Simulated scan of single mutants.
Amino acid sequence: MRESRLKLLGGFTALVIVSVMFIVPFIWLLRSSVMDLSQIFIMPPQWIPKPFHFENFKNALTVVPFGAFFKNTLIIVAAVLLGTVVSSTVAAFGFSRIRWKGREVVFAILMSAMMLPGAVTLIPSFIGWKTLGFYDTFYPLIAPAYFGGGIFNIFLLRQFYMTIPQDFDEAAFVDGANYTQIYWRIILPLSRSAVIVVALFTFLGSWNDFMGPLIYLKSDSRFTLALGLQMFQGSYTAQWDLLMAASTVVVLPCILVFLVGQRYFLEGITLTGLKG
């Protein structure tokens, strides 16, 4: 009994330590965003601003066109989210519910592509998009989502689909349903949690994407929030108070989305099977 209590205490202690390691940088970001520049680097650190400088947010969002950056980011994220959810759910349905010759071989090849480093395809992809005349447009950032939706997403959904009994498909076939109707009326409703997990991952990845816009976008008017922060930092290196305020505004949507979808996130991770 004593040994189990010690293990439980050790587990809680480890969780507290890890939680503090992740929470402290976020608290530092928040307190710095409403501090005067001279207060940020005081030693020992001053955790409660005196006074609060909420005007930092207004100043940070006006020195660079954050409104345009937010609009560009929203367009890209919405398009990528739609394309990823549609293409990955359809591809996973084909790999899990439809029997066709060579299915397992093709899926194995697809899985092996996960091990391919992104840097290997970076230059060929850039040359291809530039040759097609899509450099400095949103197309290179959006179009790939409609042709695969991400290998990991397909894998995650396929494993979830395979936990759904095949009896549902057979009963639907008896009633005259086709594969499209099975996909839309049976598989998608039953896999809502897994689809929401894919949507959450996609939103966070697209919202925080820095490398893609950095490579394919050149005009300031097409910059995303990630590039806007980099521009802000480059132009106002010493204005850490304004940079922290801008960073807080950029990171808040990610936190809100996760808080709203965390129940589905945890449910999807828990229920996603690993039978193959």
Rank of each mutant, 00 (worst) to 15 (best):
D36R: 11
A113K: 13
D241W: 02
L122C: 13
F12L: 15
A113G: 05
G268N: 09
P49G: 07
L274S: 14
F66G: 01
P144K: 04
F168L: 05
G67S: 13
I255F: 03
Q230K: 09
F232L: 04
G276L: 10
W100A: 11
G10T: 06
R192F: 14
V174D: 14
F107P: 02
E104L: 10
R99Q: 09
A238I: 13
M43L: 14
Y183R: 07
F22T: 15
R158V: 12
F70V: 04
L204C: 12
I127E: 10
G150P: 07
P124C: 14
V250M: 06
G176F: 07
P165I: 13
D220E: 15
V174R: 10
A92W: 00
L252R: 09
T270V: 08
Q166N: 12
W100Y: 11
K7I: 11
N59W: 12
F265K: 08
T248K: 15
T73M: 00
L242Q: 01
V63A: 04
L200T: 06
G273K: 15
P253D: 12
I186D: 10
A238D: 08
L242T: 01
I164M: 09
F138T: 06
R192H: 13
P124S: 03
L15S: 12
F152R: 04
L256R: 15
F152Q: 14
Y236P: 07
Y216V: 04
F232G: 00
Y264R: 03
Y183Q: 04
V34N: 03
F107V: 09
G128P: 14
G149W: 01
V105R: 08
A68P: 01
P117G: 05
L214K: 14
L266A: 08
G149R: 02
